[in-house]
């Protein structure tokens, strides 16, 4: 079953074409790894798929109504003046919150759960941000450089989680310079194009 289709997508900034005529589709239970150098438009493509940025050309269509999307971009969307626990209370309600608290323990953040998030290391903040994805039920998971800042154990955990999600028919789109240990198709963006 198709979940997302993109047809003839193009995006330009100040006459510079980041990419053009991109056409792809994503089925339920499949993954797409978007690759490319810095500034090639990977994050922009993710934002276009999410509907946060309008493409210069083409369109993205969600084939399933009320598609549940989990997204983690470059920005962690966590509040530095709150504790990890308070951050989760801000994001999740009742049943999802207990699931999120489980992840706090799995990721080893329970030792710092009552400290201000501002005092946490970059990696710990990233783990906290990832709980938004871990504890949500999603049809489509979109991640922008999710492995950055994570230690080996957390990377393995994330790889395992994503594999499990793909096996249970969720779809995945991610960008990463660190090769994920997941079976997914690749889309390579080359950056500035002339034609």
């Amino acid at each position: 079953m198709q979940l997302v289709t993109a047809s003839n997508l193009g995006y330009s900034i100040n006459e510079k074409k980041l990419f053009h005529n991109l056409t792809f589709s994503l089925n339920a239970g499949s993954g797409l790894h978007i690759k490319g150098g810095n500034g090639s438009g990977k994050s922009t493509l993710l934002r276009i798929i999410l509907g946060l940025t309008s493409p210069s050309k083409g369109e993205v269509e969600y084939c399933k109504p009320n598609l549940q999307i989990s997204y983690l971009g470059h920005k962690n969307a966590i509040k530095h003046y709150l504790t990890p626990m308070q951050n989760l209370e801000l994001i999740f309600r009742s049943s999802a919150l207990s699931e999120a608290i489980k992840w706090i323990h799995i990721l080893g953040l329970n030792k710092v759960q009552d400290e201000l998030t501002a005092n946490l290391s970059f990696g710990q903040q990233k783990k906290l941000a990832l709980i938004r994805v871990f504890a949500s039920e999603s049809d489509l998971i979109i991640l922008d450089e999710p492995f950055v800042g994570l230690d080996d154990a957390s990377r393995d955990l994330l790889n395992g989680f994503l594999q499990k999600q793909l096996a249970s028919d969720a779809s995945l789109i991610l960008t990463s310079h660190i090769e994920p240990n997941i079976l997914c198709s690749e889309l390579v963006l080359s950056g500035d194009t002339d034609d």
Partner: peptide
């Protein structure tokens, strides 16, 4: 500005 800078606005938009 806080929600804009930390990415919360993107999550709310979704």
């Amino acid at each position: 500005s806080e929600d804009y800078e930390d990415g919360s606005l993107e999550q709310i938009h979704l």
